[in-house]
Amino acid sequence: MIPFLSLEGKRALITSGTRGAGAATVALFRELGAQIVTTARTQPADLPDSLFVAADLTSTEGCAALAAAVRERMGVVDIIVHMLGGSSAPSGGFEALNDEIWRKELDLNLMPAVRLDRELVPSMVSRGTGVVIHVTSIQRQLPLPEATTAYAAAKAALSTYSKSLSKQVSPHGVRVVRVSPGWIETEASIDLATRLAADHGGDVEQGKKMIMESLGGIPIGRPSKPEEVASLIAFLASDRASTITGTEYVIDGGTVPVV
């Protein structure tokens, strides 16, 4: 029986693939037959050298080094999944965000995709095939002014850039799509829930509830699992989604309260 979903023979670059939804995406792509390269600043012990390139993607030099390593190992890529993102900005609203913080948020959440696409997408265009997936965030629609203004703005910029790229390269056979997660139950988010609960004398479930309430609620009553986000990405990267381009898929348990 032919499997419903296969990435057999596909060559994929997945950034930030060592933990959370990125690690789940790496694991699923490998299970589905893809040849992958992933990257982070530090290599985890359970990931072999053949699958990993250490790089700091917040710099121009780091992106160029990764692109060169990808070309050396795989020749060309069929799929790029831009998982990298996050925030280290302080709370305190817009007044707490100086120029250096803004630069760091943009260099983490926008510029790695811009730089890597510029390096690797032209070969997709010349071959007339390829898939680029930009992982954005529902924060671009639901920013939390106290804590995520710069992160949300960077992800909004990534979404707009992605849409523009799709309009340029889709006529040449290259699909560009966005995946917009809400809260994902990663190790980091569970640590946050644990800290919040400890501050208020509760348990981790109460901490999770506090996070959900800060987002305005999650109708299904829980965050997404990393594996669920990975499954959506794998489908969009596959030939099953061959006419899907230029659009965004939200995976947030119903958090965004608008159509």
Rank of each mutant, 00 (worst) to 15 (best):
T38M: 03
V177I: 15
L108Q: 07
I190C: 07
S16L: 01
V131S: 14
V179L: 11
V37Q: 08
I101A: 15
P143A: 03
E31Q: 15
L196V: 04
R222D: 05
G33M: 10
K104Y: 07
K167P: 00
V76H: 12
V174G: 08
V256Y: 13
R71G: 00
D203A: 12
D99P: 00
G207N: 04
G202N: 13
V114W: 11
G202D: 12
A67Y: 02
K167Q: 13
S166V: 09
A68F: 11
D199P: 01
N109K: 06
V125I: 15
G22Y: 04
R41V: 00
G182T: 02
T38G: 07
P219Q: 05
G202V: 09
F29T: 06
D199F: 09
A188W: 01
K163T: 14
M111E: 07
S214Y: 01
Q43E: 14
A12C: 12
R127M: 09
I133D: 08
A21L: 15
L142Q: 14
M74Q: 11
G173Y: 11
V26E: 01
V204P: 01
R115H: 08
T136V: 15
A198T: 06
P122M: 00
G85C: 10
L97Q: 13
P223E: 07
D49C: 03
P219V: 05
L106M: 13
I138G: 11
D78F: 05
N109H: 08
R71L: 00
I80Q: 07
S159D: 14
I220N: 13
A96W: 04
V176Q: 10
V70R: 01
G221W: 05
I244T: 11
G254N: 09
I211R: 12
P112S: 10
P181L: 12
V26Q: 02
L196E: 02
L13R: 02
I138N: 11
F29S: 03
G207P: 02
A152F: 09
P90M: 14
I101S: 10
H82W: 03
G86W: 12
V26C: 06
P122K: 00
I251N: 02
L196F: 02
V169H: 07
D46E: 14
V37G: 03
L110T: 08
V70C: 14
D46Q: 08
A69K: 09
R73I: 05
L165K: 03
A150T: 06
V77P: 05
E105I: 08
A54S: 15
R240G: 13
E227R: 04
E8W: 04
I80D: 01
T25F: 04
E95D: 12
S6W: 06
D239V: 02
S126N: 08
F235L: 13
E119H: 08
A153S: 14
S224G: 15
F29Q: 06
M111H: 09
L196Q: 05
K225S: 03
T247D: 14
P112E: 07
G75I: 13
D252K: 06
W102A: 12
G128W: 06
E8V: 05
D56C: 06
V204R: 13
R178P: 01
D239P: 03
P112C: 04
A69F: 09
V81E: 07
E119Y: 04
A154L: 12
S162T: 10
M1A: 07
E228W: 14
V169I: 08
V121I: 15
S162M: 04
A89T: 14
L192Q: 11
T25M: 02
A96T: 11
